[in-house]
Amino acid sequence: MGDRLDDLERRIDELRAGVRRAMRARDTATARGLRADLRAAERAWDALVTGGLDPALPNDARAVPPPGDVRAVFPHDNARAVSPPEGPGRLAIPGEALGGVPVGGAPSSTAAAGGAAGRQPGAGGRRGGGGLRLVTVREQAHQALTLLGVPAQPRLIAAVREAFLGGGLRGAQLTSLRRDEERSFASSPYGRPYYLCAALTDRLSPARGLLAVSTWPQELRMVGPLSPRVHFLTCAVAVAERMAGGHGVDAEPDSGAARLLARMARNIPGGAVLDIGPPDPARVIEAARAELAVHAERDTRDRADLARRAAAQLGDRGRLFGAATLSTIGDRAATGPPAT
């Protein structure tokens, strides 16, 4: 085995040097070929050196252990875990910490799961020790959006899930969701009780990176110049109310909920007394409402105007998913003549 390892190492060194030389010369075709050989050699090396354990598991497929548990960090002596499968029908299990889902209830995975449970004893949405309830990614996002009540970015949706509804959702899983939803809507309009749709800009195009719920009134799905701030403050109120309501409030100061609220609180004038220590939900609510009062009237007016325009200019699909995706011509029509 030593000889084979030596040979492989020599080969890997040669290939690496070759790839980097090719990259430097911008010879991408050669680099690609060498890279493929290199990956194969590396996999062979990994397999040989770890004595047959399968190291080719994708990185994001590993259970990331809770902070503090050093032993659980590395893969070879740990339970294997897989991430939710890709595609619109993605499945995930609420209550499971940080993205890992035990396969077939492998016993050694309980370290990670137990750690999560220990840290979030009262996490909302977590089911008791009984059977695992399967919730799709879109349903998970829907729950989080319903909690927030306004359009939100995937990053915030994932943070809210982790804080109150049980984690398992990563922002990256939501990136293609809107497109999938639009496709579904296009093939059979209103075939689902709700769609995760776009929020629309003042040009009636979909706002980048925002998810909304189709059952919300049109005004709520419009984004005026003040709306990003209003959304943020509204979300802060929602998160603080959820905490004040006993959800996540008894968690440790470093729990997801406390961290989320602390991050929001410090960006609201008067929301955080000190940088350190757990945020006071009542204080956050008061501070956020105080600033909301400054923006609310104009924002509501702006969004109502935009909603009227959307109703007048867009069809059903456009009202949910925005003008620009219908066709590029539509985009031009909405934005005036092209640049010179």
Partner: peptide, 18 residues
Amino acid sequence: VAEVAYHDVENVGAHLRH
């Protein structure tokens, strides 16, 4: 505090940004 209005210039598409 009142100054929060946000404009994402990229909403118009690359050819119109300038």
